[in-house]
Structure formats: structure tokens, C-alpha cells
Design a protein around this nucleic acid. Structure first.
Length: 674
RNA sequence: GCGCCCGUAGCUCAGUUGGAUAGAGCGCCGGACUUCGAAUCCGUAGGUCGCAGGUUCGAGUCCUGCCGGGCGCGCCA
């Protein structure tokens, strides 16, 4: 880890700035530390002299010289050199650096408040698809990255069990399949119930389109589900419960788990909204509109004017007819409660967001829904006190929330922040972070391969949009199945002696690596045109490539132990009395591998700051490339010079440990062989 | 109309507190397995960083305008 060293250097430079130029911490510029472009120039560099040149009326080169001379030698720094241009280059003491890192540094403490990450949130009415994998992979990586730096994280998965999508499939069961509760229950016991619902959902959509009057059945079903009455609601409950279990299994395959499932139905039944409404009224965040076209509604003023005013006639008409209530005003109002007294979707979300921050003044009841792989409970909310006394942890009441939702929900997320602001919860508004990302579409080739007719609208575009409604998309489990199958073929080919169980286990790890790396490596603002051929590639920039590097490093130590009984700990123990010329004066690759390996903590901070996981992915990939090149060029087991061998082994040991941690952050495991 | 996002090599993309010579994968062409595993490595070719201004010692990165593309803006969820 390199950040402790950054801290140390910043302190030293800051100290020198104060002594030389009288620039105390309040007046000194931010001290930027970068890696130098190559090892000849040193290891870390700061351009701080450029920043100061104008202020001190002095050439950068002079400042750099003075600062370099003033920096006291320390245990970790071998020497400091000013460059002609004005950079200050720092050369680290390589053996001291590596030995300290192998010995392990104390973890940095985090001052962060408890953080809630909400992700996945798939409608519980059909199988998960690749778009959902992107959401969950991003969300889960965020969770891991936050926890890595010491932040307390609670993972929530929101279940919209009272929405239109659930109602649609219930209508499908009742109208298209003539099924009753018991029939659906029997069906749900069968394998891949979620696949059945996927198809049924598409059929219902077509059925509605054939006769728009049928939409009345949807409205009726929705009403019954919302009010929890009759067999329709019972089927809705069953459907959502069973589909959520399918989703948990699918996500479990990808090493993704949750602490709490929050059910929308419980928010309704516990009347969170009523409570939130009181708070909104008390703070004046919403008000009743008496006249105009929103007469009878409770509305919230919104900041931006991004509502369409594409009908100039209407604008002119209303403005003239109702002085004082111009449409300009009306356009900056968002309806929260309709004139018929029902709440819009924003209302429910405001209540939920308030609860997340512990600002609602109400809580759910909790039940245990399932078990995690580690045996711990997956909790779920419930609207009734459980019969058995349970002791759930304190859920909610966070200092920061991340809502991982695709970019199309930006407007809603912005409204949530504005509601918090209007209620004078400025700090919470600031800490309601919408982690947005672009959608996953399909490449033309893959869409064709799946047998979909490409609509005219899509023909001109570089990708085909996924549509759950039409059943157009790649199911998550199908993708995983294909990947496992391909990985298994490779593993068996390369390791004929491996038994079938183990080969299957390894193949699953490889499949997970392939999918998760694929979802992480693009920046979140980019549409992914998913192509099955590309995702199936295990070569080049891929998850399996990363695993392969770690496996190779591991196998060196496996052999070292088998042949000579030497462990990584043994190697570490000898370094103090081993000449370090290989590291200090040998080829740069070994030292570069060590230095780059140490940057994980720096990369993690960058990732949290920018919420851009491609940085993490590229770091991992670059590190694997460095190692693979090193591996090819510099032997360890077959190296005869003992000192050289030990220092190389030490470098590889550190690489292996850092690489494994990096992969863990992406939810990727390292098999023993592959 | 307004708001947000995207535009970097043939293709797909990194490059996000502004820093030294703009990178990778794939594809193309050519090399390296009696050696710690070739899911690998080495090399060649390939660039007006959408366009035009501006700020700066320094701009792919920041600002302004424009061009091209995507998404969003309901008393739907």
C-alpha cells in the first residue's frame, strides 16, 4: 500500500515549504504526487514547483532545487532529485519499501459514517437479464471497495412487489393460463420458474396490445395487490417471493449478496407515506394547489425547468384564462399527491429515502428471508411483528446513501434530493448519491443470434435495446451457463488429471471472472453493446487473464514448497540478510512490479472519489500484464543465484497478495489451477 | 424547447483532484513452447484526442460556442 508513503512525503514537503518560504498549511498549494513515467526518473514526482513559480517569482527549476535539498533524508526515501524542468523526483528505498509491505501495514482507519448501498432492485416478475448484472456488479463492487477502506456498509435490495410488472404476470396467470394460487405454487416449485414468467410477461404484453381494453384487468389487479386483498394479491405475494429467491440464487452465482431486502408492500402497509406526508406538509416542502390545471393536487416546487412546454397554444390559453397561475409556475411543480388523493411513485421513494437516513421516525419489522453463503441471515422487512423474537441489527439510519440505478432514473433521483432540501435536510441531500450508469444493449450480431427481428428503429443504431416487456434480452443464468460450459471445456483440456467436481468449481470461478470484469471495465456513462462472442473471450483484457496471472504466481510458491519446503513466510524471513542488488541495481521490471502492486489503496481512493470502476479494472489488468511479462522474462525456480531468486520471489509474493485483494474487490476468486 | 451523458487508432474502449513522450484489447503482419503452465510473451503498422476559440508555465482533461449521437423531462412506475 502506498498511501502511507504519500502522507509521509506530503508532510515532509509541506514542512520544507514552511521552512523555506514561510508557506504554512493554510497557504501552501495542494501537493500533487504522481508516479514518474519511468523508473530512471525516480518513483514518485511532484510538480509543486510549477505551482509556486509565479507566487515566489522564481524559476521552477530553482524552487525544485531548493526543495529537494531541504527534504530531509528519511528511512523510506533513498534520494530526491530536482529535474531541469522543475519536477521533484523521489527515489524510494526499494528493499525497505518491499519488506515493510510484505510485513503488513496497519489498516487506515475510516471516519466515514455508516453507508447504505442499494442495488439490484429487479422487478420480481421475471428472470434477471444482463442489464441487471451490470447494476449488481457495479453495486457489489462499490460495497466491496467501501468496505476495503473501512467504511461500514449496509447492502439493500429494493423489491417492488406492488408494481405494474408484478400485476402483469399475475394477470397472465389468471387470464392466459387460467391458474389459481395452488397452480402457481406448484409451478413455482419447478426449475427456473423465473424463465416461465419471463415468457409469460412477454405474452401478456402482446395480449394487451391486441385489445387495449384488457388493460383494465391490469389496473384492477394492481389495485388488489396494493390493498392486499383477494387471491390476486396472494398470487402477487407468491410470485414476488419466489422470483426474488430466483434472483438471489442468480446473484449468488456471481458472489453477490445482500443484508436486507426492503419490500415496497411494507412501505405501503406500514404507512410510511402518511408519515412522510406529514413531514412534507410541516416543512412546507409540499403545498395544496387550489386552482389551475393542478387543482386539488399536493405539489412540490422543482428547481429546473426541464418540463416540456411544447404546446404553445395551451400555454397561451391557460395563462390568459387564469391570471396568477401562469403555466410557467405550473411547469415547475411536481405532483406528489393526485387530485384523487393517491400518492405518486415519488412519494413512496421520498418516504423510503427518509427512512434510510433515519429521518422518518418509523421503522419496519424484520424477518429472516434466507441464508447467505457464509451462513449469516439475509434479512427482509415485514409489516407485522414476527412471532419469534428476533434480534435484527439496526437497519437504516445511515449517514450516506448510494442508489445504484440506471441513468434513466436521474430525474427521480434529483427529485429525491430536492425533497430532502425542501425539508431542510441539506446534509442528507448532499449525501444522497445517485450512482448512475448507462444501459446494456445488445450488439446486432447477438440480437440476431438470439433470433430477434431487428426493428426499423434499431437498424440504424449501433445496438439493439433490451426489452423485458417484449422478452428481448439475454438472461443472466443463460449467460452464466454458456460461460461455465466454455470454461469447463478449457479447464478439462488443460488439466486432464483434475477431477470433475474440481473442474466444475474452477469453471464457475472463471465464468464469474469473465462476466464481472466485462461489466466493470467500461466507464459507467457508456452504453454497453453486449456481444456474446466478446464476452466469451478468455484472452487479452478479460477476467480469466487476471486470474491466470494470479494462478501462475501461486504455482511458483506451490512448487517452491513442494521442491524445497520453502514458504512465502520463509522467503520474507531471509530478506534481511539477503543482498538486495537484484531489486536496487537489477533490471527495473522487478521493482516496477512491486511499486505498481502497492498502488491498490491509491486506486481504491480514486475509485470511490470518481465512482469510476474502470479505473480499478484497468489497474488490475495493467498489474497482470506487468506480472506476465516479468514471469516470462525472469525465472525464479530456475534461477541459480540465491539472492536474486529470493528477491524475485519476494516481489512475486507481494504481487500475488495485492492481485488477490484487487480481484476480491471485483468479486473474483483465484483458483488453485485453471 | 430545457437538462444530463457520449464523441480518442480499422473496431471496442482506458486515460476523472490539469503534469514529463496520448495507451490497451481485438483485428492485421512477423517472431517465441526439451525451461516456474503459450488462457502467455516479444515486435511492426495504425492518431487533425468531433470542430473553433479561451484560461494556464502546461489542456485528451477546465471554460465558452458549434457539429454529430444517446437518454430524460406525466395527476405512469
Amino acid at each position: 500500500m502506498i498511501l502511507p508513503l504519500h502522507d509521509e512525503l506530503r508532510a515532509a514537503i509541506g514542512d520544507a515549504l514552511a521552512r523555506l518560504y514561510g508557506l504554512g498549511p493554510d497557504r501552501a498549494p495542494a501537493i500533487v504526487l504522481d508516479l514518474t513515467p519511468n523508473r530512471q526518473l525516480g518513483d514518485l514526482a511532484t510538480p509543486v514547483a510549477f505551482e509556486l513559480a509565479r507566487r515566489l517569482k522564481k524559476a521552477p527549476r530553482l524552487i525544485a532545487q531548493e526543495l529537494a535539498a531541504a527534504l530531509a533524508a528519511s528511512q523510506s526515501v533513498a534520494r530526491v532529485e530536482p529535474t531541469h524542468a522543475g519536477y521533484i523526483n523521489v527515489f524510494l528505498d526499494r528493499p525497505v519499501f518491499l519488506r515493510a509491505r510484505l510485513a503488513g501495514l496497519p489498516p487506515r482507519s475510516s471516519a466515514d459514517l455508516k453507508t447504505i448501498v442499494e442495488h439490484t432492485a429487479i422487478n420480481p416478475n421475471k428472470a434477471a437479464h444482463i442489464g441487471h448484472i451490470r447494476n449488481a456488479a457495479l453495486g457489489d463492487t462499490l460495497v466491496r471497495v467501501l468496505r476495503f477502506r473501512g467504511t461500514e456498509v449496509e447492502v439493500q435490495n429494493y423489491i417492488d412487489n406492488t408494481g405494474v410488472q408484478v400485476a402483469d404476470v399475475v394477470v397472465g396467470f389468471q387470464q392466459l393460463e387460467q391458474k389459481h394460487l395452488d397452480d402457481v405454487r406448484a409451478l413455482s416449485e419447478r426449475d427456473r420458474f423465473d424463465y416461465h414468467c419471463w415468457d409469460l410477461y412477454a405474452r401478456v404484453t402482446e395480449w394487451y396490445e391486441a385489445d387495449r381494453d384488457r388493460l383494465r384487468l391490469r389496473a384492477a389487479a394492481l389495485h388488489e395487490i396494493e390493498h392486499d386483498v383477494g387471491e390476486t394479491a396472494a398470487i402477487g405475494h407468491l410470485l414476488a417471493d419466489r422470483i426474488v429467491r430466483c434472483h438471489l440464487r442468480t446473484m449468488g452465482r456471481l458472489n453477490i449478496e445482500y443484508d436486507l431486502l426492503t419490500w415496497e408492500g411494507d412501505i405501503l402497509r406500514l404507512q410510511f407515506w402518511a408519515q412522510a406526508f406529514e413531514l412534507l406538509k410541516q416543512t412546507g416542502a409540499v403545498f395544496h394547489q387550489d386552482k389551475g390545471r393542478l387543482a386539488g393536487c399536493w405539489v412540490m416546487p422543482i428547481e429546473d425547468g426541464s418540463t416540456p412546454t411544447d404546446d404553445p397554444e395551451e400555454t397561451a390559453g391557460t395563462a390568459g384564462a387564469e391570471p396568477g397561475t401562469t403555466d410557467d409556475d405550473a411547469d415547475r411543480l411536481k405532483v406528489i399527491v393526485r387530485s384523487n388523493g393517491t400518492v405518486t411513485y415519488v412519494g413512496k421513494d421520498i418516504a423510503y429515502q427518509l427512512w434510510k437516513f433515519g429521518l422518518l421516525g418509523r421503522d419496519f419489522f424484520y424477518r429472516i428471508f434466507d441464508r447467505r453463503i457464509d451462513g449469516g441471515p439475509v434479512w427482509a422487512t415485514t409489516a407485522t411483528p414476527p412471532a419469534d423474537p428476533l434480534s435484527p441489527p439496526r437497519f437504516g439510519a445511515a449517514g450516506t446513501t448510494y442508489n445504484v440505478i440506471d441513468v434513466r432514473q436521474s430525474y427521480l433521483q434529483k427529485l429525491l434530493q430536492q425533497a430532502l432540501r425542501a425539508m431542510r435536510h441539506e446534509r442528507e441531500a448532499e449525501r444522497s448519491i445517485h450512482f448512475s450508469y448507462e444501459m446494456v444493449a445488445l450488439s446486432h450480431a447477438t440480437a440476431r443470434q438470439l433470433g430477434y427481428e431487428i426493428a426499423d428503429a434499431d437498424r440504424e443504431r449501433p445496438f439493439v435495446e433490451v426489452s423485458g416487456r417484449r422478452g428481448l434480452g439475454v438472461k443472466a443464468d443463460d449467460l452464466l451457463d454458456v460461460l461455465v460450459e466454455k470454461a469447463l471445456a478449457e479447464v478439462s483440456k488443460r488439466n486432464p488429471e483434475m477431477d470433475a467436481r474440481e473442474a466444475g468449481r474452477v469453471a464457475r470461478m472463471i465464468a464469474v471472472a469473465a462476466v464481472r470484469y466485462f461489466m466493470i471495465k467500461y466507464s459507467r456513462g457508456k452504453v454497453i453493446a453486449f456481444d456474446i462472442e466478446e464476452a466469451l473471450s478468455f484472452e487479452g483484457e478479460s477476467g480469466p487473464y487476471l486470474q491466470y496471472a494470479a494462478v501462475r504466481a501461486g504455482s511458483i510458491f506451490q512448487k517452491l514448497q513442494d521442491r524445497e519446503g520453502l514458504t512465502e513466510t520463509d522467503v520474507m524471513g531471509t530478506l534481511g540478510r539477503t543482498d538486495a542488488a537484484e531489486l536496487t541495481a537489477g533490471p527495473d521490471e522487478l521493482w516496477t512490479l512491486v511499486l505498481e502492486s502497492s498502488r491498490l489503496d491509491e486506486v481504491v481512493e480514486q475509485v470511490v472519489r470518481t465512482l469510476e470502476f474502470s479505473n480499478l479494472a484497468k489497474f488490475a489488468f495493467g498489474l497482470a500484464q506487468l506480472f506476465n511479462a516479468f514471469y516470462h522474462k525472469y525465472p525464479i525456480l530456475n534461477e541459480e543465484r540465491r539472492d536474486t531468486r529470493l528477491w524475485r520471489a519476494a516481489g512475486v509474493s507481494y504481487f500475488r497478495s495485492q492481485m488477490t485483494k484487487t480481484l476480491e474487490l471485483m468479486g473474483i476468486r483465484v483458483p488453485g489451477r485453471m
